[in-house]
Design a protein around this nucleic acid. Sequence first.
RNA 1: GCGCCCGUAGCUCAGUUGGAUAGAGCGUCGGACUUCGAAUCCGCAGGUCGCACGUUCGAAUCGUGUCGGGCGUACCA
Length: 562
Amino acid sequence: MNIKETIKQLIEDALDNCAQSGFLSEKQFPPFTIETPKMKDHGDYATNVAMLMAPLEKKSPRKIAPAIIEQIPQNDDIVEKLEVAGPGFINFFLSQSYWLKAFKDISLQGDTYGRSHVGQGEKINIEYVSANPTGPLHIGHGRGAAVGDALANILKAVGYDVSREYYINDAGNQMELLGKSVYARYLQLLGKDVAFPSDFYQGEYIKEIAQHILSQHGNQYEKTSESESLPFFTSFAVDSILRGIQKDLKDFGIHFDTWFSEKTLHKEKTVDRAIEELKRKDYTYQNEGHLWFKSTLFGDDKDRVVIRDNGVPTYFASDCAYHLNKLERGFKRVINIWGADHHGYIPRIKAVIEAFGKNRDVIEVLLVQFVNLLRDGTPVAMSTRSGTFVTLREVINEVGKDAVKYTFLTRRSDAHLDFDLEVAKKQSDENPVYYVQYAHARICNIIKFAEEQGIPLPQSDDVDLELLSLPEEMNLIKQLSSYPEMIESCALSLEPHRVTIYLNELVSNFHRYYHLGKLEGKHRVVNEDVELSKSRLWLSNTIRIVIKNALALLGVSAPEKM
RNA sequence: GCGCCCGUAGCUCAGUUGGAUAGAGCGUCGGACUUCGAAUCCGCAGGUCGCACGUUCGAAUCGUGUCGGGCGUACCA
């Protein structure tokens, strides 16, 4: 049980007591919050429960709060004192011994600190990137990858059974177009004057693939007809592009448990089954030769075609099947991370989930906004159509994967993001990742220095944490203790960027603390007083552990030297 | 036209899911290393939270309207 949960328990017990004694008439309590106040004077934690009870009880919060307080033991191991303040807040001041005990535990937990079991092993599927295998990944995919991977790590850390998935759109029109594009380039390489329509894939990589085919297979496809050749060109191109995507993601430090092919949905008749299911429930009708799904029954703007008049299922039909498949695999929650341009798709996919008899909320869609790529403040032209774009690989090579990932994760994913290549490259204050990594390296160096001075990291029974009496130290201790709550809130809200916000605050406090020692020698971590040095080393090492754990969740390295 | 997302300091963005006196970084200016890493720290300045109503003990946060930016509105994926 973490600190917040402990306090919640205290409050709930107190409310029960109040209800039993008849002071409160309500037996059901509203969902109150426990937060850490911005101002120190307001204690370590505060709850608004009395204010929420007031209208129900028809009593003023300032009257209810004292009654609740009376039921909570004070001056004990946990709570030092309680106060009623402002409009009716109950402020908790926890005892130092409680903080120190919780604090000491952190470094004993090591790299498991921050994990919990709130997910209760629930099966959860998280799908991200899922870029079509028709071209290399660009910077926007990188953002989706960073967010998805971090979120998956966080959900796993709080006890979910997480499965990471990439959906490969390797069926349909786009594939045919891809094959035709490569085929045309191939013929051009053989000196033929063939047309290259504007809806073909324009990128240079198409020519490279054609060149590979030429060098591996010669001109043998010159003789066969287009319809005979196309399947080969399509599958060669998809394989080649997909391998590139997989390598890019691997080098970006992104891992998937499942690469799910759209083609298998057709091969294994999942598409047919999904449509049969909709038909059976009378959620379809025939009109103008097409088969329509009545998605408006479930809140969509208009009904959607699932099978065209030529008998070919739409992309949406595949997606219905795909989500049916996810449900059948037993996932209780299905998280999709999509580019913001797909937002109009959400109502229809929720509709089909509901049509399959599930709650529409089992699927949660996280929208990731576009990245605005800049160089020195001026936008870099990006157009997939014309094939002029900066690839994710180019950005990683230029900037480094840690800086790219961290930058993506410092912002909410549903907000637009300017990514300036020159700024991201700078190893300076403008670049938050170095700020955090530097703190980690600095602590490693302090520990090393201490060892050289004959003061190794102390054992848990050989350190007196009561010596940590500076306000800055207590501050850090409290902040470190809130780490598990922070992780839980990230998991709950599906907002991994909170980790970087937390890290920035923690590290900032550490750097300031460190500088106390620059001003006065007695405030150095390693100083004349060996016992004090040992307790400060313990503190420093705990900070190091939390930084490292947090960075690990983000998929960012924690270097010991820089 | 309709729908979704976003409007917070000069710039880029946070803001603990409705809490108490709205915060960081960058940029400007000024300061701090003979001792654990200056990739750091400290200080100054900077605000009608786009605007207007509303909801209540309390609003940057929720609702309605409005203005501005982005995206979507397929028998493409």
